[in-house]
Write a protein that binds this DNA or RNA. Structure first.
Length: 555
RNA sequence: UGGGGAGUCGCCAAGUGGUAAGGCAACGGGUUUUGAUCCCGUCAUUCGUAGGUUCGAUCCCUACCUCCUCAGCCA
C-alpha cells in the first residue's frame, strides 16, 4: 500500500466529545453502531453515517455494530437487509461480530415493558389512534390525560399479557409510557411504545403480534450492546429526552449517550428515501441502481469508488448546521481516487472519420497505461490509414484560444504523429463528414522542427477499434435543490439530458475487462464497465462516471 | 404565537476571550504528447443584526432577525 502521510483528522464536535469522554475515563473504548431499518436501499446520506460511525470506531480503535432496526414488519424485507450489508462491506467496512437485529431483543424489550408497568410508568390505552391524536394536543396546546391512564398495575399487566397473547385486534390497544401529557416536547406526551400488528416479521415470523416502537427499542438496543456513543441525525434531537427517560427508568446499567448531526443534502440530487422510491416506482429511473441515483448501489454502478466516497465523507465533515454540499466536492473526491487507479485508454464517442493521405510507412508505438504509474504496463497504440477522431476536436471556424484541429492546422495525435488537416469533406448540407489529413513522419516520439504544435487530440485506428455502448450520465436534476420548494413537485426539475446512450469506439485493450473496471478515456473522463450489462469480449458497455476537469469548455 | 436546534468566504468546515485552520470551487503562473494530473501563488480587517461587558469578543451578556425541526399505533 501507499504510505500517504497521515493527515490530521479534522476536528468535529463528536470527536471532541469522544476525546473528552476518553480523557475523563468514562470509557476505555468506544462502541458505535450503524442502525438502518431494512426498508429501502441506502443512499449517499447513509454513506456519510456509515463512514462516520465505522470511521470513528476505526480511528479510536473501538468497535462498530451493524444493527437492523427491524421493528416495523410491514415495511421491512430480507432483500433490503441483504443489500444494506453488501453496501456496508462494499464501502470498505466490517461490523463487529455478527449482524445485530433489534428483533434479537424482543424478549428483553417485553420484559422491560413489564418492568415499566410495574413501576407505574407504562399503561395500556384503549383510545383509538384518532382519539389519541386529539388527546395529544398541539404544538402550542398541552394534551390531556387518557381516561385509561390510571389503570392499576395488575390490570395493565393482564392487558399487556393479553395483547401479547393475541386476544385483541390490531390497533385495538397500545402500551404507552406514562410521562407527561402537558410536556412542551410532544415526544414526551405519553408516547406509544408497543402496538398490536399481526404482520409476518422477516426474522421472528409470526411469533409476535405486538411490536415495540422505535423510541423505546433503539435506546434499549444501544444499551444492551454497550454502545457508548449513539450517533443519529438532527430530527431525533427532540427524542433524546425520551431516549434518556427510558434508560433512566429501567434496570439497565448501561446508558449510551445520543448525539445528533445534520443530515447530508447534495446539490442536484435528493436524499429522501420516499422521493427516491417515487422515482423508482414511477419509472423515472431504471431502478434503485440507476447510475444517476444517489443510492450506494447507483453510485457503485456509476463507477464511484468506495475510497472516493469515503474521501467525500471526510471532506464534508460533520456538524449540526444546515448544509447543502456542492456536487463538485463529490466529483473532486471521486476524481482523486480514479486519477490514481484508472488506466488510461482511448475511446471516441462522437466519431469523425479521418483519412491519412500519406499513411505509407507509418509505425505504431507503445504507450503507458498511466503517465505516472509505469507499473500499470503498456500497450500498442494501433495506427492506420483511416482514423476516428472526436468530432468536437475539429473546427472550421475555431474560437480564440482553440488548440485543436482546424483546416490547415496541425495537431499532435496522442501517442503518435503530428497531423495536418488538408481538406474537409462535407455532405450536401454542409456538414463535415470526413477529413483528409497528412502526418509528419518525422514526429513519432519527437517534436517537429522549427514549429510548435500546441494541441493534442486522441484517435483510434478504424481497423482496430471496437464498437461499444457508452452511457453518458449527467446530474439528475436541473436545479441545485430540487426539493427546496414545497409547492413545486421535485420531479418537474428532472434533467431530461441526465442520460444519453451513444455508440462509440474503444481501443482493443479494454476488450476483456470484467464488469466494474474503471478506466480513464483520455480527454473525456472516467468510465467503468457496467456492472450488469457489460460482457467481456462480447458486449462492451461503459458508464461515464465523471468527466475530467475541463478548464477549456467552461471559459 | 409551545419545545428543540442552527447561523464563520460561492459550497462545506475548524476555532470558542488574545487578534479568522483546512478542503472544494474560483482566479493567476509553471511543467505536460490528456485544455487532465502535478507544482506554485491569490482568495474573510471579518464570524446573522444591534447593543453591552472587557485592555481585547466569532467566542461572554442582552435584544432582535433568518432558517431547520416536532403534533405516526413510521424510523
Amino acid at each position: 500500500m501507499s504510505s500517504a502521510p497521515l493527515l490530521p483528522t479534522v476536528s468535529n464536535f463528536i470527536r471532541t466529545i469522544i476525546d473528552n469522554d476518553l480523557a475523563a475515563g468514562l470509557h476505555k473504548n468506544i462502541i458505535t453502531r450503524f442502525p438502518p431499518e431494512p426498508n429501502g436501499y441506502l443512499h449517499v446520506g447513509h454513506a456519510k453515517s456509515i463512514c462516520l460511525n465505522f470511521g470513528l470506531a476505526q480511528d479510536y480503535q473501538g468497535k462498530c455494530n451493524l444493527r437492523f432496526d427491524d421493528t416495523n414488519p410491514e415495511k421491512e424485507s430480507e432483500e433490503y437487509a441483504l443489500s444494506i450489508q453488501e453496501d456496508v462491506r462494499w464501502l470498505g467496512f466490517q461490523w463487529e461480530g455478527n449482524v445485530h437485529w433489534a428483533s434479537d431483543y424482543f424478549d428483553d424489550l417485553y420484559r422491560f415493558a413489564v418492568e415499566l408497568i410495574d413501576k407505574e410508568l407504562a399503561y395500556v390505552d384503549d383510545l383509538t389512534s384518532e382519539e389519541m391524536r386529539e388527546y395529544r394536543g398541539t404544538l402550542t396546546l398541552p394534551g390531556k390525560n387518557s381516561p385509561y391512564r390510571d389503570r392499576s398495575v395488575a390490570e395493565n399487566l393482564d392487558l399487556f399479557a393479553r395483547m401479547k397473547a393475541g386476544e385483541f385486534a390490531d390497533g385495538a390497544r397500545v402500551l404507552r409510557a406514562k410521562i407527561d401529557m402537558a410536556s412542551p416536547n410532544i415526544n414526551l406526551r405519553d408516547p406509544a411504545i408497543y402496538r398490536i400488528r399481526r404482520a409476518h416479521h422477516i426474522r421472528t415470523g409470526d411469533k409476535w403480534c405486538i411490536y415495540p416502537m422505535y423510541d423505546y427499542t433503539h435506546c434499549i438496543s444501544d444499551a444492551l450492546e454497550g454502545i457508548t456513543h449513539s450517533i443519529c441525525t438532527l430530527e431525533f434531537e427532540d427524542h433524546r429526552p425520551l431516549y434518556d427517560w427510558v434508560l433512566d427508568n429501567l434496570s439497565i446499567a448501561c446508558h449510551p449517550r445520543q448525539y445528533e448531526f445534520s443530515r447530508l443534502e447534495l446539490h442536484y440530487t435528493i436524499t429522501s428515501k420516499r422521493k427516491l422510491l417515487q422515482l423508482v416506482n414511477n419509472k423515472l429511473v431504471s431502478g434503485w441502481d440507476d447510475p444517476r441515483m444517489p443510492t450506494i448501489q447507483g453510485m457503485r454502478r456509476r463507477g464511484y469508488t468506495p475510497a472516493g466516497i469515503r474521501e467525500f465523507s471526510k471532506r464534508i465533515g460533520v456538524s449540526k448546521s444546515g448544509n447543502s454540499v456542492d456536487m463538485a466536492v463529490m466529483e473532486g473526491a471521486i476524481r482523486e481516487d480514479l486519477e490514481a487507479i484508472a488506466p488510461r485508454v482511448v475511446a471516441v464517442i462522437n466519431p469523425l472519420k479521418v483519412t491519412i493521405t500519406n499513411y505509407e510507412g507509418a509505425l505504431t508505438r507503445e504507450a503507458d497505461f498511466h503517465p505516472n504509474h509505469p507499473e500499470f504496463g503498456r500497450r500498442m497504440v494501433a495506427f492506420g490509414p483511416e482514423l476516428f477522431i472526436e468530432a468536437d476536436d475539429f473546427s472550421e471556424l475555431p474560437p480564440a484560444g482553440w488548440k485543436r484541429l482546424t483546416l490547415g492546422g496541425e495537431v499532435r495525435l496522442r501517442h503518435s504523429y503530428v497531423m495536418r488537416c488538408d481538406e474537409a469533406i462535407k455532405d450536401v448540407d454542409g456538414h463535415v463528414i470526413e477529413l483528409r489529413c497528412s502526418i509528419d513522419h518525422a514526429t513519432l516520439g519527437k517534436n517537429p522542427e522549427g514549429r510548435k504544435v500546441k494541441g493534442v487530440i486522441h484517435f483510434l485506428s478504424c481497423a482496430h477499434a471496437l464498437p461499444a455502448e457508452i452511457r453518458l450520465y449527467d446530474r439528475l436534476f436541473t436545479v441545485a435543490e430540487p426539493d427546496a420548494d414545497r409547492e413545486v413537485d421535485f420531479c418537474s426539475y428532472l434533467n431530461p439530458d441526465s442520460f444519453t446512450i451513444v455508440w462509440g469506439w474503444v481501443e482493443a485493450a479494454v476488450q476483456d475487462s470484467t464488469p466494474e473496471t474503471a478506466y480513464q478515456f483520455e480527454r473525456l473522463g472516467y468510465f467503468c464497465t457496467d456492472r450488469r450489462d457489460h460482457q467481456p469480449g462480447l458486449n462492451l458497455v461503459f458508464n461515464r462516471t465523471v468527466t475530467l476537469k475541463d478548464s477549456w469548455t467552461k471559459s
